[in-house]
């Protein structure tokens, strides 16, 4: 039966809207800052994270429990989105969530590169993509980076990995590029313009972060261009080239012509601080996702908005707990939170 465009998304959108309603309210974060780690763990254990905290409570304690509960919950939540969606929504969600495959591959490679233990690596693995946790636990056991890369030979990510020549950053960068170019291809194939728009904005934000980081590190134009991801919405390829060549202050001034400027203009005095810039850009992405998802209520956008909001919730919680663990002052933790 030919369901109309709206009806197709009604189920999944109503569902993610209900899920979004159950995210931790923003006014809890200042309270978390005053709480100890067990209290925060207990609090999230009384919310949507209940199953994860109760179940992992027999295996882990303290921050380990917290981190594993966050990861497991994030992975299960996203997996649920894949399980309960159908047709186009399912296809787009699956493709979008491949970012976690990229993340996991990077995590394993980085872990192997720095000689981290299996347990340490697995602590950061979030199996929300197509690579299964069980497979990853096997791959983590492999000793060498080359061995790990060979283990990914049958995945679609191998083209980005096979060129590994001892520089991890290169592989990571080509993984990102591969992910986005595949995603743009998939979005174009499905003909979903809204998804594409969302994606291109995400690429812009990612490029801006890279630019700020590279500029701060004083990298050269060619090196920067190599890192940037093509396909952005406002920052076209020639813009990227132009911005990469500028000095830091010129670069900041040049940003005024883009709509992203309003996200960072009020902190232009302290643009040197990466934390502020990155949280601002993340916040911009969050607000953008939520506002366009209201313009197109029966589309893929509310789902993407939820995926983003959930990710940021987990990131915020992780920042708070890691900050507390290392006794960071509260205002520094706060500066890292995307709210």
């Amino acid at each position: 039966m030919g369901a109309s465009d709206g009806a197709k998304y009604a189920y999944i959108v109503a569902r993610v809207r209900a899920m979004k309603g159950k995210l931790i309210p923003r006014d809890m974060y200042p309270k978390f800052l005053n709480m100890e780690i067990p209290e925060i763990t207990r609090f999230i254990g009384e919310s949507e994270y209940k199953n994860d905290v109760d179940e992992l409570g027999k295996k882990y304690r303290g921050t380990d429990l917290f981190e594993h509960a966050l990861n497991q919950n994030l992975a299960l939540t996203y997996r649920k989105l894949i399980d309960v969606s159908q047709n186009e929504a399912n296809f787009l969600i699956t493709e979008y969530l491949r970012s976690f495959d990229i993340w996991n591959i990077k995590t394993v490679l980085r872990g192997k590169f720095s000689g981290a233990s299996e347990e340490e690596i697995l602590e950061d693995v979030i199996s929300a993509g197509q690579l299964r946790y069980r497979d990853l636990t096997e791959i983590v056991k492999i000793g060498t980076i080359e061995g790990v890369i060979a283990a990914f030979a049958k995945t679609p990510y191998y083209p980005a990995l096979e060129g590994y020549k001892g520089v991890l950053a290169d592989v990571e960068n080509s993984l990102d590029k591969l992910y986005y170019s595949n995603l743009i291809k998939a979005a174009s194939a499905s003909g979903n313009k809204l998804f594409l728009k969302f994606l291109r904005t995400e690429i812009d934000l990612k490029n801006l972060k890279i630019l700020f980081r590279m500029k701060r590190a004083g990298m050269e134009r060619d090196e920067i261009i190599k890192m940037l991801i093509p396909g952005g919405m406002e920052l076209k390829e020639n813009d990227l080239g132009r911005l990469s060549a500028m000095s830091f202050s010129e670069f900041v001034r040049a940003l005024e012509e883009f709509s992203y400027w309003k996200a960072i203009s009020d902190i232009s005095a302290e643009l040197g601080s990466l934390i502020h810039i990155e949280t601002r850009l993340d916040k911009y992405g969050l607000v953008y996702a939520s506002s366009i998802s209201y313009y197109y209520p029966l589309s893929i956008l509310p789902v993407l908005d939820y995926i983003l909001s959930k990710k940021i919730e987990v990131d915020n919680l992780r920042i708070i707990v890691r900050g507390k663990e290392t006794n960071l002052p509260e205002d520094i933790i706060k500066a890292h939170l995307v709210m």
Binding site: A7, A10, Y11, I12, V13, A14, R15, R17, A18, M19, G21, K22, V84
Partner: peptide, 10 residues
């Protein structure tokens, strides 16, 4: 469809 979706969550 939307009602069932929302109910499944809450």
């Amino acid at each position: 469809a939307a009602a069932v979706g929302a109910m499944a969550e809450d």
